[in-house]
Design a protein around this nucleic acid. Structure first.
Lengths: 350, 350
DNA sequence: CTGTTAGCGCCTTCAA
DNA sequence: TTGAAGGCGCTAACAG
């Protein structure tokens, strides 16, 4: 009942497997096997060892085990931020998968600061993570990143933004997403279109735009203004971008926001000017965050499934960890799905 | 230039401090001191050792260091979820603080599942975290939690929901938040009031309600319906709660949502029924998420500052780690601030 | 099937 | 100021 050093305040020495095996009258190997519930150990012994563990208040020292095994059972995840529900959902589903596989998630937010991202990655490597998932900050230098990442033999995967085809990657199929949305708008009779927001220099932005403009070109839709309005993915940026657009005197048939967060700002600014989304201008967006269907009016959005993205990311990483043979890089693209709602469905050229 | 085992594919043995010191012609102690940039080492030696490190591609093995020092330089954070911007912002600011202090954040999402939370906490303890912050799942048994937590001597702090005064805690001052909001509504002339949402059995819920109802009672405001409508903190739940309320035939002067996420659902359902927030019914809420000011109409909300909450949480934890003497438990309450916007300011009894 | 032993890489004491 | 050596708690190899 009375474990040694149970007294409050005094520094209690850690109870080790050795202590346990001594008390139980077995070897440390046996005690260790009991921990893993090995079937080769007789039940009687298991019971005795477990009793000794309880008696002493033994806690498995995973840190020591990991050190010994040269494994950390930890996955590093570096993302820019989680204020955007897309990233939040992705992180949660990634964590769920890796935790269930016995890993712990080491979480870092780069806040789109490349310096910070760099030191975070370094620190994670020092901790000996078994795998790293990165949603790269805007402005990340692909060459430097490759250098940093290749210096370790740790499995590595990019999320949502990539730099080519040389490494594992998982993200939404942004080009297709842009195409489907472009088709939808063209079908509505949209002739002039504005793209609003999105990180200036990210693969996801380019892909969405390319998909959209490809279809737009086919259908004779004009892009206004000619110079795209970019900005951070915040509600305020969305409102400011919209204000800038309208101040220019450009009221296009449709505004396509880079994501639902920005679209919220678009809605606000339109309302502030007495314009109604879905009546005076069609509004569409990407991601289909929870709540998009409860905007007023409900927002047409391309669902990009961050949950699936996080899950796929986890499973690729775990696979690479289990089987570190260098296979061909995987590019997993999550198929998007258009949710048509009143913000476009209600629109008609007048 | 050619580190041993640089060849691709072959399992490369880790470069240790011993390897470095051998190459540099110094002892391991010296090499170790160079790592910490000790001033007792002559510059000439430092340069030589650093060159050896580069030559061999040495990476500091933090895992080994931590094992040796019986510290993990890791902080565990268990939260229910981060879909709610309040929790997301809190987690980000907590991470920022602890990372800058040299710690890494181990992140777990309990999804309000007590079982899961339990195994997450256990695993974190096994990893030897230096501190634990917990935003407890609804349904957490305080006694069991206390037992689990006391079994370790690791500093521990509760976030946002507490169970009494026996342990460190940081959260919004919910009672005061409720009072201020109640006063504001009473001043507007609100006579009937509905509270919508919030976890059934959490301190934060009780405190907000108590603050609000205390003021309401003073000013003769009636609560409708008598039985409070609860539900998950989602947009859908907010809409459903509102529907339930209106189906009952209760249209109060004001609806107070538990938080901005729920308020979004309230807005949607009101609009669906042709009612306008701020005109037909006053709507107010808690948290003041980014975007609350860009709702249509702008949403009156009690700002609860998750950023400050996360920062305070981190600093208390770090303080406890540095100075583990058992001092009195700290209860840090973040002062809220009312943001009055059109969703209430525009309302007037008709 | 079970016990003993060596050592993972670092930090810390101790000696030179 | 610097070098050598021991050991943190566990696992894996080996011996019995």
């Amino acid at each position: 009942m009375s474990a040694p050093g149970t007294g409050k305040g005094e520094h209690m020495a850690r109870v080790t497997l050795k202590d346990v095996s001594r008390l139980a009258g077995v070897g440390t190997t046996t005690a260790s096997l009991v921990l893993r519930d090995s079937p080769t150990i007789p039940d009687e012994t298991k019971v005795r060892v477990r009793a000794a563990m309880d008696e002493l208040g033994y806690v498995y020292n995973r840190q020591a085990a990991m050190f010994r095994r040269q494994r950390s059972m930890a996955i590093g995840l570096v993302v820019t931020e989680i204020g955007n529900p897309y990233f939040a959902d992705l992180a949660m589903h990634l964590e769920q998968q890796v935790f269930d596989a016995g890993y712990t998630l080491l979480m870092c937010y780069s806040r789109d600061d490349v310096q910070r991202q760099d030191s975070q990655i370094r620190r994670l490597y020092e901790r000996g993570i078994d795998g790293l998932a990165l949603l790269p900050a805007v402005g990340t230098d692909p060459t430097e990143l490759k250098h940093l990442v290749d210096s370790s033999s740790t499995p590595f995967i990019l999320i949502a933004r990539h730099f080519g085809l040389e490494q594992d990657y998982v993200g939404a199929d942004n080009r297709v997403a842009g195409q489907i949305l472009g088709r939808h708008l063209a079908d509505l009779g949209v002739r002039t279109l504005t793209l609003l927001g999105g990180p200036e220099d990210a693969s996801a932005t380019h892909e969405r735009i390319n998909g959209l403009t490809g279809i737009a070109a086919e259908s004779g839709t004009a892009m206004v203004p000619s110079r795209r309005i970019t900005g951070a993915s915040t509600v305020v940026a969305g409102a400011e971008g919209t204000a800038q657009l309208l101040d220019n005197g450009d009221l296009p048939d449709a505004i396509v926001a880079y994501n639902d967060v920005i679209a919220t700002g678009v809605y606000a600014e339109l309302h502030a000017r007495g314009l109604r989304p879905g009546r005076d201008v069609a509004v569409a967006s990407f991601d289909d965050n929870p709540g998009a269907s409860h905007q007023v009016p409900p927002l047409t959005s391309m669902a990009t499934f961050p949950d699936r993205c996080g899950e796929i990311c986890a499973s690729i990483l775990l696979e690479r960890i289990e089987q570190p043979e260098p296979l061909a890089p995987r590019h997993d693209l999550v198929a998007p799905r258009l949710r048509i709602r009143a913000s476009t469905a209600g629109w008609a050229r007048r």
